[in-house]
């Protein structure tokens, strides 16, 4: 299993039946492909869909029906369309149970940075500030390190923040970590790596609970 698939496969297990979930642009929107076809969930896509579902068959793709990342999605029975003010009313009124979101940096206090790398790559805020501040549960999906091998999981974020103290859980290609009042606690290790090796690859101090390594063996 690739590092990306390992994140997505584990992320899919975060989706609780009967919930309303927003999936951010990038890795999170791909989580939908790892859910069973009949799974009971309503995907909120902030461009104006409640009840978005997997990609349409090629002959049925509708260029006017995309998710927030541009994929040609389908909708499920009971779905609805609405304008952007209504879409974010739903978010700010805390009607969403879970948002999975990408990160440039995330830290031990649950701070999230994913909108601006000054002078280099500033994709912008999109829905991230409102989603991060107002969704009941925030799970960050990220590679553990960047392309240069530097930890993306920091003691304190250095980039401009999207929202403070908003993240509940981090799922990387190496581990599942929870943000607690005592910092990051490792809940699962997702690959063949020791506690010491995981800490070596992580800038933030990690606490290990003695959880068994869940090597996926693939």
């Amino acid at each position: 299993m690739s590092a990306t698939d390992r994140i997505l496969n584990r992320a899919a297990q975060e989706v609780v039946a009967g919930s309303i979930v927003n999936l951010g642009i990038g890795l999170p929107t791909q989580v939908i492909h790892f859910l069973p076809d009949d799974f009971d969930v309503q995907i909120h896509s902030e461009n104006g869909i409640l009840g978005a579902w997997k990609q349409a068959q090629p002959e049925a793709m509708d260029p006017f029906l995309i998710d927030s990342a541009g994929a040609y999605v389908t909708t499920r029975p009971g779905s609805s369309f609405f304008d952007s003010a209504v879409s974010f009313a739903m978010i700010r009124r805390a009607r969403l149970d879970l948002t999975m979101i990408g990160a440039f940096e995330v830290d031990a206090s649950g701070n999230l940075a994913n909108w601006k790398i000054p002078g280099k790559f500033s994709p912008g805020i999109g829905g991230a500030m409102e989603l991060a501040q107002k969704t009941r549960r925030i799970v960050v999906l990220t590679t553990h390190t960047d392309k240069k091998g530097r930890s993306k999981i920091l003691e304190t974020c250095r980039l401009p923040l999207t929202a403070k103290r908003c993240v509940n859980r981090i799922i990387s290609d190496l581990a599942v970590m929870d943000v607690t009042p005592d910092g990051l606690v490792v809940r699962e290790i997702l690959t063949d790596i020791s506690d010491a090796e995981l800490q070596e690859l992580t800038e933030a101090k990690l606490t290990f609970t003695g959880a068994e390594a869940a090597n996926d063996g693939q």
């Binding site: 952007s84 879409s87 974010f88 009313a89 978010i91 500033s122 994709p123 999109g126 829905g127 409102e130």
Partner: peptide, 30 residues
Amino acid sequence: THIGLNKKVIEIMNAGDLIVEFHPQGILAE
């Protein structure tokens, strides 16, 4: 609110040839 799918416009912004003002998406809508 978001120009992450347009590297060309990010380059033009970084070169100082376009002023970009970002807002949270729902705040812009509201």
